[in-house]
Amino acid sequence: MELIYNIFIKDGGWLTILNGLKVTVEISALSLLFGTLLGSLLCFLRMSKFTPLKIFAQVYIAIVRGSPVLMLLMLLFYGVLARAGMPPVAVAVITFSLHTAAHVAELLRSAMMALDRGQIEAARTLGFSKWQAFQLVTFPQILRIAKPVYQSTIINLIQWTSVVGYVTITDLTRVINNIASRTMQPLITITGGLLIYLAISWLVHGIFRLSERKSQLRQADS
């Protein structure tokens, strides 16, 4: 017990861990936001009837999804954006947004492909405009279908951010590594770090479960 205290609490160690956690959450949240927006746009381009845009989206998704995120991050930070003078966290957010966008685009496309086209046609026959059909028929169903995979994407994103120590960012993993080196207790420290990541994943899972429950209740009420 004393060892655990010395590793995680003593001399304000827990505050340092919290600061690392804050950085991890910050990068993950911003990347998720921008990645989702960009991913939606990419999905739109990918499904477009205009061939050059479709090909652009296809190539983008193929390259980014097939690249290890650490390589992409190092390439941007130490290469492409090295002279831009951008803060490391901004480069990390750009990298993870680009990477998440490719995944979000594909998950949205698969959700759209799972939709029954007949429903949209029926809505149009009933006099719904294109926008109304999308807003009232397509969109709610996409959300429902994409939700479980989107949840996995968020959890994956949080785990991917653990490599930002390579670009001078002190995130949760970096803090855990620093503590492990200082205390010479890597196995216990890494287990502690793993539990924190697990807690975040469960929190994300809990939020999705809660929103699912709420929508079920709403459906039952109506």
Partner: peptide
């Protein structure tokens, strides 16, 4: 001082991040 992973030291230096 910038904290960087051991494996990225050379990249940090040559790219002028350090």
């Amino acid at each position: 001082l910038v904290n960087v992973d051991s494996g990225a030291r050379a990249a940090a230096l040559t790219s002028k991040q350090a």
